[in-house]
Design a protein around this nucleic acid. Sequence first.
DNA 1: CGAGGCCTTGACCGCGGTCAATGCCCGTGG
DNA 2: CCACGGGCATTGACCGCGGTCAAGGCCTCG
Lengths: 188, 188
Amino acid sequence: MQQQLKKIEEYFQSLDAETREALQKLAVRKTYRKGEYLLKQDEQGRCSFDIEAGIVRKYYLNDGKEVTTGLLFPGDLAISFVAYTLQEPSKEYIQAVTDVVVAQLDYHGFQLLKSKYPKLVVLDLLLTEYHALWLESRLLELRTLNAEDRYKQLVKSHPHIVQQVSLTHIASYLGVTLETLSRIRARL
Amino acid sequence: MQQQLKKIEEYFQSLDAETREALQKLAVRKTYRKGEYLLKQDEQGRCSFDIEAGIVRKYYLNDGKEVTTGLLFPGDLAISFVAYTLQEPSKEYIQAVTDVVVAQLDYHGFQLLKSKYPKLVVLDLLLTEYHALWLESRLLELRTLNAEDRYKQLVKSHPHIVQQVSLTHIASYLGVTLETLSRIRARL
DNA sequence: CGAGGCCTTGACCGCGGTCAATGCCCGTGG
DNA sequence: CCACGGGCATTGACCGCGGTCAAGGCCTCG
């Protein structure tokens, strides 16, 4: 996965100035305050958000309960992949966990740009591959680790997450209840 | 997901004859007997397999126990996505569940073809998107359905699977033990 | 006929969920 | 300045889904 990020970075750097500028021009910098929504359920997934500062989470509702599918940090791409790819109403919410600055990219704008600059198709492919790799690793994690090990792994990869994100959200991301997470932390 | 398949099909049909032929030429038709391996752990993921007949499963070992990550049917693409994309040794096995006929595509050959026929990059993107969509839906399924509902859903989408694949494999795919699956079936 | 693979069934257990009570922190208003 | 209320986290009691271990049934194939 790290190698894929490197590949993406390298590829991006190798792009000619014109292509890069076209991309930059398409991006709109926006800020959201803690608690605000970048995308709500039933909205069309018309943008991707490159996070420049702050923390964002994605979640959906499963009979009334929030299921957090992602916790995203600067450098990550916040996007409801299904709604974005299929251009259909989103089942996911995307919400600012802290105040947030993003570079927002319009879907249709990006599609147009791809037909004008075919090199961007390769970039899109690399990014999509990265997303798929992430999903694969997440699936592996959920199938092979118990709640405690998933928590340890999360803290290992994001040491400050506990200071920044409420335990409620973390529990929901890990796939356990708040109570269970609380007990796990108590016995560590 | 169905729409994505349709998109792929349509895109493929819209390709010019030359590009299509180049692809066909790269493909090697091969057969494997029940039980044989299309890919073993630690082998490089150098091929993708378009299944033309038969059933294939993918699995990895988690402290000695098999974890089935996919059951694949004609029309599906059998591939160890991580090993293929990153070109590293595979953690997954790909095994023929029945006698199988596949069209086998070499990774490097396909990469070369993509640089010669840029339209294939778009095809690659569409296929990767499809894989990511599948992973998203699988993740959703594992997080929102209990074992019984997952089983029902599997049977609904593949009514004959029970006749074709051993319950051991099905259980492993569903993420439960053989015993649990047996009890679920007993009470339906 | 015997061996081995595959599945079923039973007894038991533990992880994590549920429900409810309590604690703690902090912002708001009297 | 304190009192109250609400959001978030902790703790306890209890339960059920699914895992584990073990025994036994049923094919199939040699």
